[in-house]
């Protein structure tokens, strides 16, 4: 695992992997969504509004998957002190928050025609909203911790990692909310090995999920490269400032 502890090796890999993930993800997502809009069948009861599932469900999975990745990276940072783990966790936060917000927005658009309400305080919807707030809190906390304690470097402070682990408790709550409590949101259509979706919806959903996941991966890699580059700039500026400081003193 520490093979990638060397940022130079990671950067060599990320340099070609980032555009590959982004381009293939955009292509797959684009093709799937055009197909969904133009030729996917209407659903028996929901009609065309069911097609929102091709965005809503991948967004929900990635919102939850993002925090799971963030929690695993936080654990890796805390226990093994892996230098890229803190950067990875910070890189996941923004796309994770984006997909959680996208899930809430598309769900709300679907809820109005299907349920008759934009929003209800149901267990599933509320716990998903909490996830979005957790992401926003993590972003603010990591930003503040890196600026004040870490001299602008990710991972100098372990407080965001602890927050990332604590927040993981919400993930099983989101998943089981529709099973533990009576809720307006339907139970999962897809469980291990069985599906209550017609194949045409299922395969479309899997293709859209693959596309969105590739985009997610590409954005995370791009964010990690940005954070590493920023740290490098910061270090160079500091060195330069020190040298100038030293030079002035010699002149005097």
């Amino acid at each position: 695992m520490h093979g990638f502890a060397n940022p130079a090796r990671f950067l060599r890999l990320a340099r070609w992997l980032t555009p590959l993930l982004l381009v293939s993800g955009l292509a797959i997502t684009g093709i799937t969504l055009v197909w969904a809009l133009l030729s996917a069948p209407a659903e028996r009861l929901q009609g065309d509004s069911a097609k929102i599932l091709f965005v809503h469900v991948p967004a929900a999975w990635l919102g939850m998957g993002g925090w799971s990745a963030l929690a695993i990276a936080s654990l890796t940072e805390l226990v093994w002190r892996h230098p890229l783990a803190a950067i990875g966790a910070r890189a996941v936060a923004i796309p994770g928050a984006f997909f959680a917000a996208l899930c809430l927005a598309t769900g709300s658009l679907w809820g109005r025609p299907a349920w008759g309400a934009w929003w209800v305080w149901d267990g599933r919807l509320t716990s998903m909203l909490v996830l979005l707030f957790l992401y926003l809190a993590y972003i603010a906390l990591a930003e503040a911790a890196d600026r004040d304690g870490g001299n602008g470097r990710a991972g100098q402070s372990r407080i965001p990692a602890i927050f990332g682990l604590v927040g993981a408790i919400n993930i099983p709550i989101i998943h089981y909310s529709v099973l533990w409590w009576n809720s307006l949101h339907q139970p999962p259509s897809i469980a291990m090995g069985k599906s209550a979706m017609a194949p045409v919806f299922l395969y479309g959903l899997l293709a859209a999920s693959l596309g969105f996941s590739l985009i997610f991966g590409g954005v995370v890699l791009a964010r990690m490269r940005t954070i590493l580059a920023n740290a490098q700039t910061e270090a160079r500026l500091r060195r330069k400032a020190l040298q100038e400081d030293f030079g002035e003193r010699e002149d005097a």
């Binding site: 209407a42 139970p187 017609a198």
Partner: peptide
């Protein structure tokens, strides 16, 4: 809505 998605 239930968990079933069925074409029209």
């Amino acid at each position: 809505h239930d968990e079933n998605y069925v074409p029209r």
